[in-house]
Every structure is written in structure tokens, then in C-alpha cells.
């Protein structure tokens, strides 16, 4: 899997908000060994777009997203946000950027301080960031507006603490806390994975509404392919620290060309899964990121593996003439070029 390369970066567009180039994230593993968590990943996100990052545990999707906000700063590579390279900023400059990029996490309950009232949790960012003159009336109005926007009662929020809310409501509080500083980007790390399906639908709809209302750009991480397909404009599939397929979400799910994407999709228990009858199953174990395979990182488990895959790393190349890119020497090209089955709806 994949591979390096930056052919898929959209240099021609002038509305690119985040541009990550050659991102590498390595962690020391003791005894001089190194965990190659993310290796030479590039992608861009346009303003108002949602990029979905999918892949299995350990593929580096969360590490990639956290590297965007420099938590921790990447080993190498650049993260360009709105024309500024975040990796080159000093501590204080970086701090000044923080309100622009907010984050929400998987477990809504453990990410909220249980001792504080919900109103105070949501308003804390404003307390820190507003000028003296702005505090008071302005911030009160802003907090109440946001709490109401995410579907909670602002009066109750003054009195109640997180444990008095359900999991879905706590996730709404997390979203409110992220929104209060009027960020441009929200990074959502598995935001609905801990929720029941009926509540998951409520939170996903709310996120879409907030995106619309506040003009947000989202980086959405999930292991659930159906959820990612639903919320994302573009999707990047990751495996062992590399991007293997990236492009328009509907196109990738309709015509997956990378063998890994196909196996991942085939495993989704959904009756409408176009690959449900695929007999191939992903075999073997995930290789260690301390000593990732040479060539294509997926070569140890790929059903289409050839000698070349074991020695040469594939570079990301375009499939057809649309927004569809993959890093594979032998992609599955049957079906590509046909019209995607899904049609966008409002």
C-alpha cells in the first residue's frame, strides 16, 4: 500500500484550506527501534469540504489528524493551513492558531470535565480567548446560541453537569465546545463510534447542520465505512501509515480499485454492500509498524501481489479522469469509468 507521491494534491484550486505534504510521524520504540506510524502522507482539504479518513486500528488515521494540529508536531513534512506552515510556527504563534482548528473525540463522557457545569465547559474557550471588553454579555449570548444550535437547552446547561446528560447529548456538548470559538476546521475522531445507531443518526445530522450553518471544514475519522461514506465529500483509505486510495467518496465506494479498499469494503456487513459477494477475506495479521514491509506495505496480505510489489513502492496515480487516485501497481480496474451508481442528493 501504498504509497507516497503527491499527484492527487489539487494545486490548481485556490480554496484549499489544509494542505499536508510528505507528513511523517515516527515514535521511538526503545532499543533504537522506530515506530513508523505515518509515512509520507500528503492530502489537501478544500474549504467547506469533509475529508473522511478510514482504515483499521493502527493504520495511522488518528495520528495523521493529530499531526495536523501539531499534537505532537510531525517528525517531518509540512502542514499548511490557510497559507501558514504550522510546523514552522513558534509555540506562541501556534497557540494563537489553535482556536481555528478544534477537535472532538470518541468518548463524549471522558472528554468532558465531570465537575463542571455544561455552560462553563462550553464557555471556557471564550473566557480564554475573548478580550476583556468582549467577556460578559457578548460571550453569554454566544454560548447560549451555540448550546441551542446543537439541540440542547441553554437554561438547563447552567445548572447541569455532564453525567446528567446521555452519551448523545454529551457529544452535542463536545461539538458546542468546539464551535464556540468559531473555528474553521473541526477534527472529528470517531465522534459517533460510542453511540447507539438511533443517536448516531441524530449526532451525524447535527454535525451536517453545524457544518452548513457555520461554514465548517471537517476532517472526519472513523472505522465505520458506512458512516464515512455518508458524511464525507472525499475519502482517504489508509493502511499501515500510508494512503492507498483517495478521492471522491461516492466514486471510491462505487469503484474501489485498491485491493485493500476492496477487502475492507467487502467485510462491511451491509446488505447493500456492492462487494458483499466477494469471496476474498483479508488474511494474515497486520505487520508491525516497527518494521513495515518493503515495497508496497500491503504486499504481505494482498491477493494480487506480484514480485514488483515486494521491492518497489507504488506512487499515487490517477484512475480514469475524475477525482480518484490510488497507489497500487495492479489496481482492479473493471468497472472504472462507468457512471457511479450513487447520485448526489441535497
Amino acid at each position: 500500500m501504498a504509497g507516497s507521491g503527491s499527484a492527487h494534491l489539487r494545486n490548481e484550486r485556490d480554496d484549499i484550506l489544509i494542505r499536508v505534504e510528505n507528513l511523517v510521524m515516527e515514535f521511538p520504540a526503545g532499543k533504537g527501534q522506530v515506530v513508523h506510524a505515518v509515512s509520507d502522507v500528503s492530502f489537501d482539504v478544500a474549504k467547506g469540504e469533509t475529508l473522511g479518513l478510514v482504515g483499521e486500528s493502527g493504520c495511522g488515521k488518528s495520528t495523521t489528524a493529530k499531526a495536523v494540529i501539531q499534537l505532537p508536531p510531525p517528525t517531518s513534512g509540512s502542514v499548511n493551513f490557510n497559507g501558514t506552515d504550522l510546523t514552522s510556527l513558534s509555540g506562541e504563534e501556534l497557540r494563537a492558531m489553535r482556536p481555528e482548528i478544534q477537535m472532538i473525540f470518541q468518548d463524549p463522557i471522558s472528554s468532558l470535565n465531570p465537575r463542571r457545569r455544561v455552560h462553563d465547559i462550553v464557555s471556557e474557550g471564550l473566557q480564554i480567548w475573548s478580550t476583556k471588553a468582549e467577556r460578559g454579555a457578548f460571550s453569554e449570548g454566544r454560548v447560549d446560541e451555540i448550546i441551542e444550535a446543537v439541540g440542547l437547552d441553554p437554561v438547563e446547561a447552567h445548572k447541569r453537569r455532564p453525567h446528567e446528560y446521555s452519551g448523545g447529548q454529551c457529544q452535542r456538548i463536545s461539538v458546542a465546545r468546539a464551535l464556540v470559538l468559531d473555528p474553521q476546521v473541526i477534527i472529528c475522531d470517531e465522534p459517533v463510534s460510542a453511540l447507539d445507531v438511533s443517536v448516531q443518526a441524530q449526532v451525524l445530522n447535527m454535525l451536517e447542520d453545524m457544518k452548513e450553518r457555520y461554514g465548517l471544514t471537517l476532517l472526519f475519522i472513523s472505522h465505520d465505512l458506512s458512516v464515512v461514506k455518508n458524511v464525507s465529500d472525499r475519502v482517504a483509505v489508509m493502511y499501515l501509515g500510508k494512503i492507498c486510495e483517495i478521492g471522491d467518496g461516492d466514486e471510491i465506494f462505487a469503484n474501489p480499485v485498491h485491493p485493500y479498499t476492496r477487502l475492507l469494503l467487502a467485510a462491511v456487513p451491509d446488505p447493500d454492500n456492492p462487494l458483499a459477494n466477494e469471496s476474498e477475506t483479508l488474511v494474515g495479521e497486520l505487520p508491525s509498524p516497527i518494521d513495515p514491509p518493503k515495497g508496497c506495505r500491503f504486499n504481505t496480505r494482498c491477493p494480487r501481489v506480484q514480485d514488483k510489489c515486494r521491492t518497489d513502492e507504488p506512487v499515487i496515480e490517477q484512475i480514469g479522469d475524475g477525482d480518484h487516485w490510488t497507489a497500487c501497481w495492479y489496481p482492479v480496474l473493471e468497472g472504472v469509468g462507468e457512471t457511479p451508481v450513487a447520485t448526489p442528493t441535497a
Binding site: V197, S198, A201, L204, N205, N230, D250, L265, D270, T345
Partner: peptide
């Protein structure tokens, strides 16, 4: 309420 692979992106869910 379950998102489905057959839905196009940004299909409104029914919670």
C-alpha cells in the same frame, strides 16, 4: 436510522 453504503454522500439520516 442506519447509514447505508447505498446512500450517496450527505444523505440525510432518519434518527
Amino acid at each position: 436510522s442506519v447509514p447505508s453504503l447505498k446512500h450517496a454522500k450527505h444523505t440525510r439520516l432518519t434518527p
